[in-house]
Design a protein around this nucleic acid. Structure first.
Lengths: 199, 199
DNA sequence: CTTATTGCCATACAACTGACTTGGAAAGCA
DNA sequence: TGCTTTCCAAGTCAGTTGTATGGCAATAAG
C-alpha cells in the first residue's frame, strides 16, 4: 500500500469545504469541481473519497448534525450540576440559534439540506430523524420542571416542547434573513421561558 | 397586430407552471424547458414573455405573495364585524399554515425562494419586504386586544407579534416535513393565543 | 526484484443549462 | 393590397454538470 491516509479525516475536510460553498452560494450551487477547489484538491481526488455526489451530500449532512449535537452537549457541560431544566432549555436553544458566524453557517447549510429534503426521499429521512429525539429531550425537561414545581402542572410537556422547537426554528429563519436581531431573538426566547417557568 | 394576447395572464399561467415544478422538484430543478413544457408552451414562447429566467422567478415570487395576501384578506372578510383581534390573529395564522394542498404548494415554493434569497441579493429584498408589514399588523391586533382588556397590559405588542410570526413559521417547517400533524399545529397555535388573550 | 494495491490525476463524455438568432405566421392598419 | 407589429417555433451556441476511464506514482508484501 502507498502512503496511508486517514479516509475519514479527508472526508470531513471535504465536507467542510462543501459547507463553505453551500453557505456562500447555496447547496445547488456547489458543484463537485467547486468543492474540490475549495478543499484544495483535484476533482479526481474528491471522487476517490466519494464515489458520487449524493454520497458526499449525505456524509456532510450527518457530520453537520454530529457537530451540532456535540456543541450543545459541550455547552450543557458548563452548567451547574444538577442543572435546572430552565437552564438546560435556554442554553440548548441558544446554541441552536445562528448567533455566531459558525452557527450561522451551520444553520444555513442545514436549511439548504432541509429544502432539498422536501423533494428528495432519501434526504427526508435524515432531515426528519433528529426532531423526535430533540422533542423528547425538551419534553423531559418540561416534565422535570413540573415535578420541581417550577412549571404549572396544567402545561402539557409534549406540546410545550414542540412549541419551543417551532419557535426556535422560526426565529432562526428571521435571524438568517436579518429581519430580527440576535438580542431580540434572545429576549423573545427568554421571555417565552420566563412565562413557562412561572406557575 | 396579430391575435391579441393578455400578457399578464400568460405570465401568471407560466408562473403557476413554475410553482408546480418547484413544488415537485425544487426551484433549482426547474429549467426553462421544464417550465415551458409544464405550461404547455414552447421554450421560445416562454422567452417571449420573460426575457430572462431571473425575471420569471421574480415575477412568480411577487405573484405568489399577492395570492397569499388575497387569500388571507378573503378569509378575514368572513369574520363578524367588527372582528375581535383574537379571531383576526387566529384566522390569519391558520391561513398562513400549509394545512391544505394549495397552501402547501405555496409554502413549499415560498421556502424555495427564501433559501435562494439567502444567497441572492436581489431576491433578499423581495423575501424580506413582507415581514415588517405583517409584524406591524399583528402588533396592532395585540394592542387592540390590550385596549379591549382581553390581553394583559404587561405584554409587549411588538414582541408578541414577532413571537407569533416565528411560531407560525416554525410550525410551517415541521408541517412540511410531516413531523407534526395539522391538528397538532392548530392546537398549539390556539393554545398560544389562548394564553395571550387571558389577562 | 516483482507485483499488487492504494492514492491520485488528467481527460473525455454525454446530458443539460440559459441565452440568442433566424425565420415565418397571424392580424390589424395604411 | 401592402406593411408593420406581434407572436411563436426551431435551431444553435458556449458553458457547466456528474460520472467514467486510463494511467502513473508510491509503497508494502511476497
Amino acid at each position: 500500500m502507498p502512503k496511508r491516509v486517514d479516509h475519514e479525516e479527508r472526508r470531513r475536510a471535504i465536507a467542510e469545504a462543501l459547507w463553505r460553498i453551500a453557505c456562500a452560494r447555496g447547496l445547488d450551487g456547489a458543484s463537485l469541481r467547486d468543492v474540490a477547489a475549495e478543499a484544495g484538491i483535484s476533482l479526481g481526488q474528491l471522487q476517490h473519497y466519494f464515489s458520487s455526489k449524493d454520497e458526499m451530500l449525505v456524509f456532510a449532512l450527518k457530520y453537520l448534525g454530529e457537530l451540532a449535537e456535540k456543541r450543545i452537549r459541550t455547552r450543557l457541560m458548563g452548567l451547574a450540576v444538577p442543572p435546572s431544566p430552565r437552564d438546560v432549555l435556554r442554553e440548548t436553544v441558544l446554541e441552536m440559534l445562528p448567533l455566531d458566524e459558525e452557527s450561522r453557517t451551520g444553520n444555513l447549510v442545514q436549511i439548504a439540506y432541509f429544502v432539498r429534503a422536501l423533494h428528495d426521499e432519501r434526504l427526508r429521512g435524515h432531515a426528519r430523524e433528529g426532531v423526535p429525539a430533540l422533542r423528547a429531550f425538551f419534553a423531559d425537561q418540561v416534565r422535570s420542571g413540573i415535578a420541581r414545581g417550577e412549571v404549572d402542572s396544567s402545561r402539557a410537556a409534549d406540546a410545550e416542547a414542540m412549541l419551543l422547537i417551532a419557535l426556535t426554528d422560526g426565529l432562526t429563519t428571521y435571524l438568517l434573513l436579518e429581519v430580527c436581531t440576535p438580542d431580540e431573538a434572545k429576549g423573545l426566547l427568554e421571555g417565552h421561558l420566563e412565562r413557562l417557568f412561572t406557575p
